[in-house]
Design a protein around this nucleic acid. Structure first.
Length: 363
DNA sequence: CCCTCGATCAC
DNA sequence: CCTCATATCGAGGG
């Protein structure tokens, strides 16, 4: 039952590439796709930048104002994110990709896993050929480039798709796994981010090869049972997660940046209304009732505070949502020292709204 | 076992 | 200088 062949497909610098597709004039320039906040001006962050812009240190997550500074001498465009447009292109690409898979797993607008074990009869050379065909079809139809990793599991394919970008194709056969991983930085392992990297660098562990020298008990001690085991296996390229369709979303959240930092109840309550409306609408559209409601503060120093409450019964009534959110706000502001920069609302613990006919009608 | 909350990741 | 959305883990309290 072993011996899988799994693809991970990642669209290159996706949002920025979508903008290049829409307007080929900007190809060759620095392209930065921006998420502007409610504050106005250049407040906000970079969602994605093309490779021209990345050469100057412009990458996702950095403040727009900082990006403009880095690119002030360059021929650069800063475009507001147009998620509807990116979703359209994503859908078209996913339609193509799906056809190539025995099992297809959508991860996000720019990412998917495919199990192709049967299709290519466990032969990595056939797999590579199939992946090349797939890349060609996407490029010919949509002018979109992507990078693909081909390996025996999801973990390794995700690492491999990142190994050569853009327009990359990286294959790691079972006998090449140890060699492939050994020289990589631990940060290449999905789930190991900034904080975890810091912990390991304190221990003089920087590469995956060095990571394999740490025994599992120490990892468990530092990171907890689950994460410790995950890191231990990952360093060895071990991952048994099946490629499978994603289960439905289990929570929705909306967050907004306030026009000015504040800890005034009234001001925060005003700002939270629209979020409640949007979230309740989302729940209704998806035929969901929610039983948990939460709020989140992002303080002026970017630290966060959350407060949440379970309801006695699931519901999707807007007035009820607003009422609870206002209560949570009031409670959260007791002992709140710092001014709040951003405010968010979350709903979760979903149950389905009963349709007209369901299984119970048979009894 | 259920709930709340902070932390982390990654986009 | 700092967006937005989702999932997951672990600790701590009931």
């Amino acid at each position: 039952m072993e011996r899988r062949v799994v693809f991970h497909i990642d669209f290159d610098y996706f949002y920025a590439q979508c903008e290049e597709i829409r307007n080929s004039k900007i190809k060759g320039k620095c392209v930065a796709v921006c998420i502007f906040s409610e504050r106005g001006g250049d407040s906000g962050a970079i969602a994605t930048a093309n490779y021209n812009a990345r050469k100057f240190g412009v990458k996702s997550g950095i403040p727009i104002i900082l990006a403009k500074n880095k690119l002030k001498e360059q021929d650069a465009v800063f475009l507001p994110a147009d998620f509807d447009y990116y979703s359209e292109i994503s859908s078209k690409a996913m339609e193509i990709i799906e056809k190539y898979a025995d099992v297809f797993e959508y991860v996000g607008r720019d990412e998917a896993y495919l199990d192709v074990t049967k299709k290519i009869e466990g032969d990595f050379d056939k797999a590579q050929h199939l992946a090349q065909q797939l890349k060609n079809e996407i490029r010919n139809n949509l002018k979109l480039t992507c990078s693909i990793g081909i390996t025996p599991n999801k973990l390794l394919s995700k690492i491999a798709s990142d190994f050569k970008k853009p327009d990359g194709l990286t294959t790691v056969k079972p006998e090449q796994i140890e060699q492939f991983l050994s020289s990589l930085k631990i940060r290449e392992i999905p789930g190991i981010g900034r904080k975890t990297e810091d912990v390991f660098s304190q221990m003089n562990v920087n590469t995956i090869e060095e990571l394999t020298m740490i025994d599992v008990f120490d990892l468990n001690k530092i990171f907890g049972r689950k994460t410790g085991g995950y890191i231990f296996n990952s360093a060895r390229g071990i991952d048994n997660e099946a490629v499978k369709p994603r289960p439905p979303t289990i929570q929705f959240s909306k967050i907004t940046t306030l026009k000015k930092n504040s800890k005034e109840l009234e001001f925060l309550q005003e700002n939270v209304q629209e979020l409640c409306i949007q979230l309740n609408k989302l729940a209704m559209e998806n035929n969901k009732m929610y039983r948990s409601i939460g709020i989140q503060f992002v303080n002026e120093d970017l630290s966060t505070k959350t407060k949440s409450r379970m309801l006695r019964n699931p519901g999707n009534n807007l007035e009820e949502l607003k009422k609870i959110v206002n209560q949570l706000l009031e409670e959260a502001l007791v002992e709140q020292e710092m001014l709040v920069r951003r405010i968010g609302v979350r709903i979760s613990e979903f149950s389905d709204v009963e349709g007209q006919s369901n299984i119970t009608s048979y009894f």
